[in-house]
C-alpha cells in the first residue's frame, strides 16, 4: 500500500505541471473551441455571441463553400501535394543534414546548423520578404537575375505564377527550409546521445559512413524519426503563416499557393471580420483529418512496438 502511495506522489510530482498546463491551456480551450464552433462568435465579442447558438451553421457554410468555390479543387490538390512533399523534405532533409554534420568537423558543422536554423529564427514577415525578393517573377528577383547573368535565360521567369508546379515549388521550398531545421536539431541531439564507442568500434572494423548511418545511427534514433514525421505531418496540415504573405504579396498564384489551412484562415480572419465561429468549425474539421492521419502514421510506423515497457520498474 505504502509503495503504491509513494509511486503516486512521485508520479504526481512528475506529471502534475504538465497536466495543469495541458488541461488549462489545451483541453479546456479545446472544449470551448468545439462549443464555439456551434455559435455565431465573431470579432472576439464574447459577451454578445457566447450564447448565440447556431447549430451546424458554421459547418454547413464551410462544406457548402468547399463544394461551390471554383478555386477549392486547386486548394485541395495543393494541400495534398504541399503536405506530402514538404513532409518528405522536412524529415529526410533534416536527417541528411544531421548525419552530414555528424560526420564533419565541429566548426563547419555548427556553422551549417546555424545557417539552417536561420529560417526558424527569422520573424516570419522578414523571412517571407527574403523569399519574396528571391523568387520575384521580374528582373528584380534574385533567382532571375542570377540565371540571366549566367545566360541560362534571357527573359525573367514568373516562378510563382507558373501553375501548378512553379507555385508549389516555392511554397514547398519556403516551408521546407523552416521544417528541415526542426528535424536537424532533433536528430543532431539524438545522434549525440549515442555512445561514441559504437561509432568508433564500427570505424575500426572498416565500416563506411553510409554503413554506420544505416546500421547503427538510424536504428538508434527511430523514436525521433517517428516523432518528427508525425509531428511535422500535423504541423504542415495546420500551418499557414509562412504562406500567408507570399500569397498576399502576389508572389505565388493564389489558387496554387493556398492550402486548406490558409484558405480557412483567410475566410475566417482575412477580410475585415474575425469569424471565430467559422474558424473553430474549420479547426474541428482540420483536426479530424489530422487525428486520422496521425493514427495512421503511428500504426504504420509501429508505435506500439516502440512504446516499450520501462524495465526494472518498481
Amino acid at each position: 500500500m505504502n509503495v503504491k502511495r509513494e509511486k503516486l506522489t512521485t508520479l504526481s510530482f512528475f506529471l502534475s505541471p504538465m497536466a495543469v498546463m495541458v488541461v488549462l491551456f489545451y483541453l479546456v480551450p479545446l472544449i470551448m473551441t468545439v462549443y464555439i464552433s456551434f455559435t455565431r462568435m465573431r470579432n472576439w465579442n464574447v459577451s454578445k455571441y457566447l450564447t448565440e447558438f447556431v447549430g451546424f451553421y458554421n459547418y454547413h457554410r464551410l462544406l457548402y463553400m468547399f463544394q461551390h468555390d471554383p478555386t477549392f479543387k486547386a486548394v485541395l490538390l495543393t494541400t495534398v501535394v504541399f503536405v506530402g512533399i514538404t513532409l518528405i523534405i522536412n524529415v529526410f532533409g533534416g536527417l541528411a543534414l544531421a548525419l552530414a554534420t555528424f560526420f564533419i568537423e565541429d566548426k563547419p558543422a555548427s556553422a551549417f546548423r546555424l545557417l539552417w536554423l536561420l529560417p526558424r529564427m527569422s520573424p516570419i514577415a522578414v523571412y517571407s520578404l527574403v523569399w519574396y525578393y528571391f523568387f520575384h517573377g521580374s528582373e528584380i528577383g534574385t533567382l532571375n537575375s542570377i540565371l540571366m547573368k549566367l545566360g541560362v535565360i534571357s527573359q525573367p521567369i514568373p516562378w510563382g505564377q507558373i501553375v501548378p508546379w512553379g507555385a508549389w515549388s516555392i511554397i514547398i521550398f519556403v516551408n521546407g527550409l523552416v521544417g528541415v531545421s526542426f528535424g536537424m536539431i532533433v536528430f543532431t541531439s539524438a545522434l549525440n546521445q549515442i555512445p561514441k564507442e559504437l561509432v568508433i568500434a564500427a570505424r575500426v572494423d572498416g565500416a563506411s559512413s553510409w554503413q554506420i548511418s544505416r546500421r547503427i545511427l538510424i536504428p538508434m534514433i527511430r523514436w525521433h524519426l517517428l516523432y518528427v514525421l508525425t509531428w511535422q505531418f500535423l504541423s504542415l496540415l495546420t500551418t499557414y503563416p509562412h504562406l500567408f504573405l507570399l500569397v498576399q504579396w502576389d508572389l505565388v498564384n493564389g489558387d496554387y499557393g493556398t492550402t486548406l489551412a490558409l484558405y480557412v484562415f483567410n475566410t475566417a480572419f482575412g477580410m475585415g471580420e474575425q469569424d471565430q465561429g467559422l474558424a473553430a468549425a474549420a479547426a474541428v474539421l482540420l483536426s479530424v483529418i489530422g487525428i486520422i492521419g496521425g493514427f495512421v502514421t503511428l500504426k504504420v510506423l509501429k508505435f506500439e512496438r516502440m512504446m516499450k515497457r520501462p524495465r526494472g520498474d518498481f
Partner: peptide, 11 residues
C-alpha cells in the same frame, strides 16, 4: 467567376 465566388460563401 466573381458571381460563382460570391455564391460559394452563403454568408
Amino acid at each position: 467567376f466573381i458571381i460563382q465566388k460570391v455564391k460559394a460563401d452563403s454568408e
